[in-house]
């Protein structure tokens, strides 16, 4: 049994919130540079240049990558041999978000659904807990912006719609979204379990290194088909026309109910922020 004080979790979450918002992950940065080479539209190229330059400025500490510093989405995997002491784990994560968003000069974007009054400290974050073997704790913070989240969806297809139905749904959704989610986007697609499981899989798919194919060859093939279709839509960077609409499609799949074919599409803007730490 390994004893860990929850104050360590607070500190880690605060650090990850700041790190994620100022330092674009290397895989995303490299994918943007590849996109700049591939993009055929001059307007699209100039957009990509600005996005890359912006990442450099944010890394220097000028300001966060995007003013929408996101809702804090926290994935925490706790080894079953860990004993947490020193208070509530949930409160420790909340405090980490509060501290990170305050000390990092990050925008607080949570509000009451109807009065729209800002909560003021960017809580509550969305926390996904998992218990795993071992005595380590892995925390991933993935701040999620509203613009691209608004273009996401979950729908329940009929089993008869099959794989083709899923592909058409994904392509149609990206086409409708146009420039709204800040393309070039990363598309997370989840098919599996129930309504909420599919949404979770789509979200989790966004954490994968950009463009790293699914280890399952069949699924990797589907990702490739969807990406090719999406990049033929002509939407391009910021929706102003071009050949790079998506940097990647990440597809995660699990068994479903015999009556169902749920499909979730979680769209991420080009500022695909996620940072992790292992305690």
């Amino acid at each position: 049994m390994r004893v860990v004080d929850v104050s360590e979790i607070t500190e880690a979450v605060a650090k990850l919130c700041i790190d994620a918002n100022y330092n674009l992950p290397e895989d995303v940065y490299e994918a943007l540079k590849r996109a700049l080479d591939e993009e055929k539209s001059p307007v699209g190229k100039s957009v990509l240049k600005m996005i890359i330059e912006n990442a450099d400025l944010a890394r220097e500490g000028v300001a966060p990558i995007c003013q929408d510093c996101g809702l804090g989405v926290v994935f925490i995997e706790i080894g079953q041999d860990v004993h947490l002491v020193g208070g509530s784990l949930k409160e420790a994560i909340f405090e980490g978000v509060r501290r990170g968003y305050r000390e990092g000069y990050l925008r607080k974007s949570t509000c009451h659904p109807f009065t729209r009054a800002n909560v003021g400290d960017n809580t509550p974050p969305v926390i996904h807990y998992d218990i795993v073997p071992g005595d380590k704790i892995r925390i991933v913070v993935a701040p999620k912006g509203g613009g691209s989240e608004n273009m996401s969806m979950v729908t329940m297809l009929k089993p008869a719609d099959g794989l083709q139905g899923v592909i058409e749904t994904v392509v149609k959704r990206v086409d409708e979204a146009g420039g709204n989610p800040c393309p070039p986007i990363i598309v997370g697609v989840g098919v599996g379990g129930t309504f909420e499981r599919s949404a979770f899989l789509a979200k989790k798919a966004l954490l994968r290194h950009v463009g790293k194919p699914n280890p399952d060859m069949e699924l990797a093939k589907i990702e490739k088909i969807m990406l090719e279709r999406i990049n033929k839509l002509g939407i391009g960077p910021m929706g102003w026309g071009g050949t790079v609409t998506a940097l990647a499609v990440h597809f995660e799949m699990e068994p479903v109910h015999i009556a169902s074919l749920p499909v979730a599409i979680n769209i991420n803007c080009h500022a695909a922020r996620h940072k992790e730490i292992v305690i």
Partner: peptide
């Protein structure tokens, strides 16, 4: 736009467009 808070010595934080 809804900017992020200005860091010390700056007039504004990040300030890109919203949808």
């Amino acid at each position: 736009v809804g900017p992020s808070p200005a860091r010390p010595g700056r007039s504004i934080g990040a300030a890109g467009p919203t949808t």
